[in-house]
């Protein structure tokens, strides 16, 4: 051990003398992997809708990994739901554009080259219940209702959410509904369409329903400004 004069020592923490220098930064290597025919996901046609079904088992595997990750990271039921919601949100934002693009392609006789985004409340809700649900789950949602007490709240009801097919919630967190992920997608669609919300959340319908034990209600709470705009549009005809 060399005897160092403390006055000459640079004013650095002592552990720096033993630290290992950082390796030189690595060159960027793209991680996008190409299948054998050299066609990546970006080479595919955006309009391919017929054969775009994916296997439920592979979805379940990915969704399982997503839930396990967020479950390990968070301390409470509401935090897990919040994180699942955030995971779905960017999907919703992109889905709105993609679905509008595909809608036009489906009705190719139409003279317009892009479908307009839904601008009225009813159009948006029907778009979510019909088009969005059919694109995601291949069937429309089971019901669409307006709250009787608050006029800014709407409910979309799914009797058996596909994402919950294989998921059973343990008793100690019975409030958790993993369809919060789908709620995040809905929130993304609403935001991208210009209907800002105070959040979209997924709730269990309750014990009463023997026929559909997994019945889930998505609660959409729109901002006051959105409601005011809607009233103004309605008044203007």
């Amino acid at each position: 051990m060399p005897d160092l004069n403390p006055a000459q020592e640079p004013p650095l923490p002592s552990k720096d003398t033993t630290s290992i220098p950082l390796p030189p930064p690595k060159q960027f290597v793209p991680s996008l992997r190409y299948p054998s025919n050299r066609k990546s996901i970006y080479d595919r046609n955006l309009n391919r809708t017929k054969t775009s079904d994916i296997s439920l088992a592979s979805f379940a595997y990915l969704f399982n990994a997503l839930i396990t990750y967020h479950h390990a990271q968070s301390g409470s039921v509401s935090e897990i739901e919040n994180r699942l919601n955030r995971a779905g949100y960017p999907i919703g934002i992109k889905l709105l554009d993609l679905l509008l693009y595909r809608q036009v392609a489906a009705q190719s006789s139409s003279s317009r080259n892009t479908a307009a985004r839904p601008t009225r409340m009813i159009d948006l809700l029907q778009f979510i219940q019909g088009t969005l649900w059919r694109a995601l789950f291949n069937r429309p949602a089971d019901a669409l209702e307006q709250s009787t007490t608050k006029k800014n709240e709407y409910m979309i009801i799914d009797n058996e959410p596909v994402v919950n097919t294989f998921i059973s919630i343990p008793k100690e967190m019975s409030q958790l509904n993993c369809a919060a992920f789908v709620a995040g997608i809905i929130e993304g669609v609403c935001d991208a369409a210009g209907f800002s919300t105070d959040g979209v959340s997924a709730h269990w319908a309750g014990e009463g329903d023997e026929m559909w034990p997994g019945k889930t209600i998505y609660l959409l709470r729109f901002r006051e400004s959105v409601i005011e705009r809607e009233e103004a549009l309605k008044a203007g005809g």
Partner: peptide, 20 residues
């Protein structure tokens, strides 16, 4: 389907899974 694909089941532990 209902035990292994359930994210809240820990392997090798007693099975308490409602849908199963």
């Amino acid at each position: 389907d209902y035990v292994i694909k359930n994210p809240f089941y820990s392997m090798e532990m007693p099975i308490r899974v409602e849908k199963f």
